[in-house]
Nucleic acid binder design. Structure first.
Lengths: 224, 224
DNA sequence: GTACCGAATATTGTATTCAATCGAGCCGCC
DNA sequence: GGCGGCTCGATTGAATACAATATTCGGTAC
């Protein structure tokens, strides 16, 4: 029983979002309609509709008669996305903690275990989201979760491209386990504080890494 | 010199959003593609792209082969949108207060004056946004402002339909002037507290009004 | 009289086609 | 030799045409 079949457009949205968030389509990459449509086995019309959807989400940006590119955020904008995450996630987490059931905790633990086991960094962004979502979802704030998901996706694609941050995956897992411990104890305030610090740490590592890379590129450009 | 020409799709998005937020297209109203396209003087293709854009924003929802309707939020979901506004706006306001220039304050005052003068309730939602945006924009958090705008739009269309709340416009203006006073004094904490209370008051009035209307409808349905 | 089935119709989903615009490379002119 | 304009190819924007699906209304059997 397929309860809700997906339109072709929706499938394309999901696929493109996956490619963008995973870094397969890096920031600045152009989305050629004819080629992409052929590659996805569809016509240009549903592809264009999908692009409009992603545009509204902020993942791509279109200039009229020039085409669509994966939108590229400045370090300041990336940092801002993490700030937003801090605001929303700490709030949702604090709401979620007292409502968490054993099943919720088990789910979060399962995701953590999966992340520990899988060394594949390419789907780490998705796992990270699933963990954070599992922590916040019991808040019951579905609208906020939808918003948060957009912010998370938009930020995570930069994380996926930064190996320096990816190498810190061990440290992140430690944080995640500790967050789980706070949740288990019902300590919303303590957990929220750690969550804030956790997100801020990832953000500053990421921005530092991007800045470093940018400096390197500038240096090369200067030398050339 | 027209620097940024708009695609037909973008124009349609703006027009449809206006109609939805203003209440001209109430929640639940179906969007018939052929009719709308003819009415807007365009073909179905750009209209469909516009609909996909609005769908990503959460203003409409589409069911495959059944059509698109203006999305209708439950009272709980509406309340949640206001909760999100509280979280984001109090944060942004507190950031904005120390950065406000005289020009920012003047702008906010001008909007308040305009709102006092104009008795037209139909564009009151837009004015309300302009005021709240003026208070938060100096924070410099453009990404968050974009998010907040979406939330505000989505919530405001219900306000526009509720005369009981619209009648409280005087009280709201009092709050707005008081918020301005806090901003002028540089009292971020005091202003944020008032802002929180302000939004929560509007939310509870609105939800109460919607609940009342719904009960009335149920009663009629029961009588029939 | 009611419930179920089926054809007709309306509406959406997708593909194909045509039109408008932009960018690159070439040519002529200064 | 450099610069401006121009033509051509490529790409997107928009419209038309076709296919698939759902709703509705009428009819028939029970």
């Amino acid at each position: 029983m397929k309860i809700g079949r997906l339109s072709l457009t929706d499938q394309i949205v999901a696929e493109l979002r996956r490619r963008i968030v995973s870094g397969e389509l890096p920031a600045g990459a152009p989305l050629r309609q004819e080629r992409l449509a052929a590659e996805l086995g569809a016509s240009r019309v549903p592809l264009r509709e999908a692009i409009r959807h992603l545009e509204a989400e902020g993942l791509v940006s279109t200039e009229i008669h020039k085409g669509t590119i994966v939108s590229s955020l400045s370090p300041a904008e990336i940092e801002e996305l993490f700030e937003i995450r801090v605001q929303l996630e700490t709030w949702l987490f604090a709401l979620a903690v007292p409502r968490m059931t054993e099943a919720d905790l088990a789910l979060a633990e399962a995701v953590t275990a999966e992340a520990s086991a899988s060394g594949d960094p390419s789907n780490w962004g998705a796992l990270n989201w699933r963990f954070h979502a599992a922590l916040c979802a019991p808040s019951g704030r579905d609208q906020a979760m939808k918003l948060l998901r957009g912010v998370h996706d938009n930020a995570m694609r930069y994380v996926n491209l930064q190996l320096a941050v990816a190498m810190d995956v061990e440290r992140e897992l430690v944080d995640h386990r500790q967050l789980l411990a706070f949740a288990r104890l019902g300590d919303a305030a303590g957990g929220a504080a750690l969550l804030r610090q956790h997100i801020e740490t990832v953000a500053s590592n990421l921005v530092a890494s991007i800045d470093g890379e940018r400096r390197e590129l500038d240096a090369r450009a200067g030398a050339a």
